[in-house]
Nucleic acid binder design. Sequence first.
DNA 1: TCAAATAAGATAATTTTAGTTTCTTATTGT
DNA 2: ACAATAAGAAACTAAAATTATCTTATTTGA
Lengths: 199, 199
Amino acid sequence: MVNKRRRGTELETAIYQATLEALEKEGFLKLNFGHVSELAGTSKSVLYRRWDTPFELAVAAIKYKIKTENSGQMDEIVWQGHSLKEDLEQLLNRFIVSIRTFDVYSTGGIMIESSQQQQDVLKKVLDEGIEVDIRAIEQILQRAQARGEIKYVNLKEEIKLLPFDWIRYQILIRGSLEQKDVQIIIEDVLLPTYLSALN
Amino acid sequence: MVNKRRRGTELETAIYQATLEALEKEGFLKLNFGHVSELAGTSKSVLYRRWDTPFELAVAAIKYKIKTENSGQMDEIVWQGHSLKEDLEQLLNRFIVSIRTFDVYSTGGIMIESSQQQQDVLKKVLDEGIEVDIRAIEQILQRAQARGEIKYVNLKEEIKLLPFDWIRYQILIRGSLEQKDVQIIIEDVLLPTYLSALN
DNA sequence: TCAAATAAGATAATTTTAGTTTCTTATTGT
DNA sequence: ACAATAAGAAACTAAAATTATCTTATTTGA
């Protein structure tokens, strides 16, 4: 390897891509600076200069990925359903796609520990997502109200988040989610819940 | 250190207890044979002979803990409620206690990866618990049927598992669960869902 | 009861990995 | 063109994981 040194943004995106590649192949636990620097075609010292731990690198890389690829996707949904049920189907299926993107970087997914600091960081990432989820549900409820399917739109936050929590659990922990499961949660749980609380 | 060598079951329970202690203090990621062998007052080679990886040791230790402490707890619930709602409160509060026992060994709790093999092992552990959960819900439903609160008791398995999945998610991933959240899931979600599906 | 088999425990040796430091030189900006 | 900055390579250090070897307590069963 000789001349042509990358730096700044160019170098960092290369590192991020290498990190994501490593995460996909080896997962979180095995992520280390040595391997990533090889993949990125740079050297360890470059990574040690920028991040203190592989964990921080991983978070930065995932943030980068979300920013460049998913940015605004959930925010700008064009609703196409003609009923509360159809809107929910559209929303949850879209959500499943985006959560699976995440899942790739935690091969399978199992709970393990992390430091308090690390938890705070990840909690923040999660919470940012939650706001988007809540807004989406609120939009759906208002559409349903306009149609006359429900009278009110005030729902407790925990209930608004229920389908997202449940889907995350199925994908990240259980490791599987079939189409029929989504139908079940919508028809047997969400619709009865909403109709009971909002009429 | 000299004479008096422990072996067999005696030695292994000592190792399991040392492992659980290490898990509580340091967590999953930092679990290693060297540290555990010190805590157990034995030597590394003894551990390397029995388990290939710290992960397998951890699983074995947690299994041991569940077997000796929690065994049959959930199975032998004496129901004390006088309504479907009260039965659900009893069940879920009990469940929360048992899941928190688990949580101690994953300080905080965050999803990270593990190998396919490891996942299979943990999936099996989870699945064993699921059977107990399902039986408990079925008992409750039959009591509700006997009281006349509901007509039928046939519920899809996904729905039966919903409250357990949801609670696990809150505790293991979100990292918190308040009493009011349990009330909300029971009153606003489960009861409407059951009454809608089973009448 | 005694000898052989088994497994515990101690220790040393080896390997691997993480992390640091040093140095050279390409690149940038003034 | 020259000084400042940061990339990249490599060697080095330290720590931890893993393996190997050996001694000896304990069990087994003839």
